[in-house]
Design a protein around this nucleic acid. Structure first.
Length: 621
RNA sequence: GUCCCCGUAGCUCAGUUGGAUAGAGCGCUGGUUUCCUAAACCGGAGGUCGCAGGUUCGAGUCCUGCCGGGGACGCCA
């Protein structure tokens, strides 16, 4: 998977280096890198590893190797200079040769640039987005949705069959609460409300039924929190309120659990109600998915696996994998001699119902048997890393050798900056911002920028641009840093048109498109690319040439941010070129044609990168 | 208490399997438009890479310890 593709010029260079040093091409390919400063050359080879076998000091090895390579006739047409610099050997490639080697295949590949079929036959299952049923789709689900969708596109670009699964949280005790609230509502009133307000009504019901429980927890927390100094009277009041609430909350919980148990047992009325809520939710979610450009191959949620649970539990019991512990049926995860005790994997709770652990176990097995995946990925935030460790360990204990192919692709938490405050987006406390609200607000801000920057654009096109840039800004922002870091979403920064942002890259793309549009007529298929000799031209070509390697690294590390980082640096190279060199008014028609080909390639490469991240690339903005 | 992640410029972050004098953007500041979109480009100021040891020709990168921030830790999902 790590065979890094290289252009013909680089291939030749690597081949000759391999012949001269007797080192394998792959090793040299890993060693060859851009020097710290562009003035030093295009590529640098550290000679420490080469010096050893030659029984030389690295500095001397660099000098000798330079002299040796200078005589190589194969290198003459493609290399301008080979200079030893201390322990390093710096190569300057012929810019024309480089451009002529890189641009034609890139333009021929077009939309498929950087891709391959190396993943053919290796199916990747990606579990992502996975919101809960009858709850609003909020910002917390955005990270998983955006990252998962990008990974799906990246793996597809490399030829992997991909199954994107939206593992809906549509099963569990929460369903019981939902049913209870519904049953307690006025029968005619609730139908009217559901028809009129849809999912919003379900959310209200859920919040209402949970109110006593929520209040109880927060009061208890307050009593226990050493940081909160309570007045003596306040303490008594709080305890009194807790005494009032406790029985109410317990009664609600008891009933809710009972209803969920009935659902699991197959109660037909509850199944119908469940299906109604589920469909209602999916329809609303689809609006958000459409805006984000996300589509799933499967929406098999937790409820989907219900029929598999009992047989699975029976099977595990028979095979002696399940043990009784504190009234639950569990898969123990600690080794007998281990001192540090890991919590077990709970398959059946004391009340006889299953947990999400049980459903995850069944889902993993289902995915293996149905899709025969090479990799099974879970794009879920970092707080669940222990859960997934447990899940994978449990699969191992069940004897599935493919447990090693399962991976938790975790990411940090997201917070939102509002003025001077930074709001956490945990379920408790922080207000959850509905996704639609976030997107609308961004689009609104961008719409004003469009008005200011490009007032001549027709109104309906302004709307399209605002949608593409506003939504794109959020999607790009999320993916512009490594997964592991906690993200602080800053409205001002994300919409700032200056900076390392989605709008910056989109603007670069629009500029490239603009040149081609102004040129109008066709771009010659085979311009003389050896005319491209300026450093700014070579810089753009080198950036474009890196893309295939970036794509592979992004797939291997499950790290779409590599694509985002690449986009920014490629855009910077292009903008530098744009500012310094004229295309349409180039010194000669032949040079103009060559530069047009360069612009065309840059346009394709940038659009390709943006598309992989789920960001649309408007041709005008 | 145990385990996981993070700590790089005032802020947000890059930094390739260890390689040359640690890089961007924002913000601050100076400049570039008779020229293809100035949502751009070029320059300046700004650093004890959390701290201390260790490994080696070489450490922001690997190891150990400590400090600081975040997260998780059996019947919620």
């Amino acid at each position: 998977m790590s065979a890094s593709p290289a252009n013909p010029v680089l291939q030749t260079l690597l081949g000759r280096l391999s012949a001269a040093t007797k080192l394998p091409r792959e090793q040299l390919s890993g060693m060859l890198r851009p020097p710290p400063k562009a003035e030093m050359g295009d590529y640098a080879l550290p000679c420490h590893a080469i010096a050893g076998p030659r029984k030389q000091k690295p500095d001397q090895a660099a000098i000798d190797l330079a002299a040796e390579l200078a005589l190589d006739p194969h290198l003459k047409p493609i290399v301008i200079s080979i200079e030893p610099a201390g322990a390093f050997l710096n190569f300057r490639l012929d810019p024309g040769a480089l451009c002529a080697a890189v641009l034609p295949p890139l333009r021929a590949a077009g939309e498929a640039y950087g891709g391959s079929d190396e993943g053919a036959g290796q199916t990747i299952v990606i579990d992502y987005s996975s919101p809960n049923i009858a709850k609003p789709f909020h910002v917390g689900h955005l990270m998983s949705t955006v990252l998962g969708a990008s990974l799906a596109r990246i793996f597809r670009a490399l030829g992997h069959p991909v199954v994107g699964v939206n593992h809906l949280g549509d099963w569990g005790t929460q369903c019981g609460y939902q049913f209870l609230a519904w049953k307690q509502a006025n029968p005619s009133e609730r139908e009217v409300q559901l028809a009129a307000r849809g999912i919003d009504y379900l959310v209200d019901l859920y919040v209402e039924i949970n109110r006593p429980g929520k209040e109880l927890t927060s009061l208890k927390d307050r009593l226990l929190d050493k940081n909160v100094a309570l007045q003596p009277g306040e303490r008594v009041e709080t305890e009194k309120r807790i005494a009032e609430l406790a029985p109410v909350a317990e009664e609600i919980e008891r009933k809710a659990r009972e209803l969920f148990r009935k659902l699991e047992e197959g109660d037909p009325d509850l199944r119908i109600l469940w299906e109604r809520f589920r469909t209602k939710t999916l329809n609303v979610l689809q609006l958000s998915y459409d805006r984000l450009g996300v589509a799933f191959e499967s929406t098999a949620g937790e409820g989907f696996y219900e029929p598999f649970l009992l047989p699975l539990i029976e099977d595990l019991k028979q095979r002696g994998i399940l043990f009784e512990s504190e009234g639950c049926w569990v898969i123990p995860l600690s080794e007998p001699r281990e001192k540090k005790k890991k919590p077990p994997f709970i398959v059946v709770k004391t009340d006889g119902t299953t947990k999400y652990d049980t459903r995850d176990l069944a889902a993993a097995i289902y995915r293996k048997t149905t899709y025969d995946f090479a990799q099974n990925l879970y794009v879920v935030d970092v707080r669940q890393s222990l859960h997934f460790q447990g899940l994978f360990k449990a699969l191992e204990k069940c004897g599935y050798e493919w447990a090693k192919d399962c991976r938790h692709v975790s990411y940090g938490l997201m917070q939102i900056k509002e003025g001077d405050a930074t709001l956490p987006m945990t379920t408790r406390g922080g207000r959850m911002i509905p996704l639609g609200e976030l997107l609308d607000r961004m689009v609104g801000i961008v719409r004003e920028i469009v008005n200011e920057k490009n007032p001549a654009l027709p109104p309906e096109q302004k709307d399209r641009v605002a949608e593409a840039v506003g939504v794109g800004a959020i999607i790009f922002w999320i993916q512009a840093r490594r997964r592991s870091s906690n993200i602080v979403f800053d409205w001002k920064e994300a919409t700032n048109p200056d900076g390392d942002t989605g709008p910056y890259v989109q603007y670069t793309h629009a500029r490239a498109c603009s040149i081609l549009r102004k040129h109008g007529t066709y771009i010659p298929d085979q311009p003389d690319l050896t005319l491209l000799r300026e450093p700014e031209e070579a810089a753009v070509v080198k950036a474009l040439d890196e893309f295939p390697r970036v794509l592979r690294a992004a797939a291997e590390g499950y790290e779409p941010s590599l694509v985002a980082t690449w986009l920014v640096s490629a855009s910077r190279s292009f903008n530098d070129f744009y500012n310094k060199r004229q295309v349409l008014k180039a010194e000669s028609a032949a040079l103009r044609d060559a530069r047009l080909a360069l612009v065309d390639a840059a346009r394709l490469g940038i659009a390709r990168g943006l598309k992989l991240l789920g960001v649309t690339a408007p041709e005008e903005m």
